[in-house]
Amino acid sequence: MSNFKIDIREKENINVIDLKGYLDAHTAPELEKIFQNLIEVQKFNIVVNCEELNYISSAGLGVFMAYIEDVRKHNGDIKLSNMSAKVYNVFDLLGFPLLYDIAKDEAEAIKKFISVKK
């Protein structure tokens, strides 16, 4: 019984990951696998849409920490979007807004990728 779900789709050549439910110590390895797969096939422009993310724990944040450098090394980025106040609060508490690009919504996050390319 896992109340966590990950969907992945492509939009304007950007890989969008939809997180749903609880990202915690138990489910963190699932997100890790997704990042690993994307990096393996050289997809480095990633938006993580947190619209339906109800909860994130330190272990969940740790996955972002573990892969951000690999992605940025290849001129990509992991941008986050559509965060609820509750989830943002955890990011904020641990100082993540300094390290990560957090956009209001998905469109804004995607636009940031595209404007950088031009």
Binding site: A25, S57, A59, L61, G62, M65, A66, F96
Partner: peptide
């Protein structure tokens, strides 16, 4: 949360992974 998760895991590799993720996330 991690304590609870650790308790149910008997796979050392997974414990190591969870430990490192939690440290990376919490400490930055």
């Amino acid at each position: 949360e991690v304590g609870k998760e650790f308790n149910g895991v008997l796979d050392a590799d997974r414990v190591v992974k969870l430990l490192l993720f939690s440290v990376m996330g919490q400490i930055g």
